[in-house]
Amino acid sequence: MVELSTAIDHLATEDVAEIPRIQLAEQLLELHWQMARLQAQIARRTGVRLP
């Protein structure tokens, strides 16, 4: 989880106005893909029944 938090912190420090449009589009696609993966893991863990 630390790595995830660190990666998000890194994204937050970037100046998106400085990112070339094509690279920004690529990043947006990748971010949406990673967000879907994260949501799948949240859903997976939500369904776990604890003893």
Rank of each mutant, 00 (worst) to 15 (best):
T46E: 12
A40G: 07
S5F: 07
A36T: 03
P51G: 08
T46Y: 07
A12D: 13
R21W: 01
A43Q: 05
Q34W: 14
D9F: 06
E14N: 04
W33M: 13
P20I: 01
R21D: 12
R21H: 10
E14P: 00
R21A: 15
A7Q: 05
L50Y: 05
W33Y: 09
A43T: 09
L28V: 12
L38E: 09
L50F: 11
A43K: 13
Q23H: 09
P51C: 00
S5I: 08
M35R: 06
A17L: 10
W33F: 15
E14G: 06
A7F: 01
V2G: 11
E26L: 13
E30R: 13
V16M: 04
H32R: 13
L11S: 06
A25T: 08
A7M: 03
E26G: 06
A40F: 01
T6V: 06
A40K: 06
R44D: 03
M35V: 02
D15A: 05
A36N: 07
A25Q: 12
L50R: 10
R37V: 08
A43P: 03
L50M: 06
L29M: 14
Q39G: 05
D15M: 01
L29K: 15
L24M: 03
E3L: 12
I19E: 02
M1A: 10
A17K: 01
A36V: 01
A12C: 08
A17W: 05
A40M: 09
L28W: 02
H32L: 08
M1V: 06
Q39E: 10
L38A: 11
Q34L: 14
A17V: 01
P20H: 04
W33D: 15
A7E: 06
R37S: 06
L24S: 01
H10G: 10
A25N: 11
E26A: 11
A43G: 00
L29N: 15
E30Y: 08
Q41W: 01
E26C: 02
R45I: 09
A12K: 15
A43E: 11
R21S: 11
T46I: 09
Q23L: 04
Q34G: 08
A40P: 02
L28E: 12
D9E: 08
L28M: 14
L31T: 12
L28A: 14
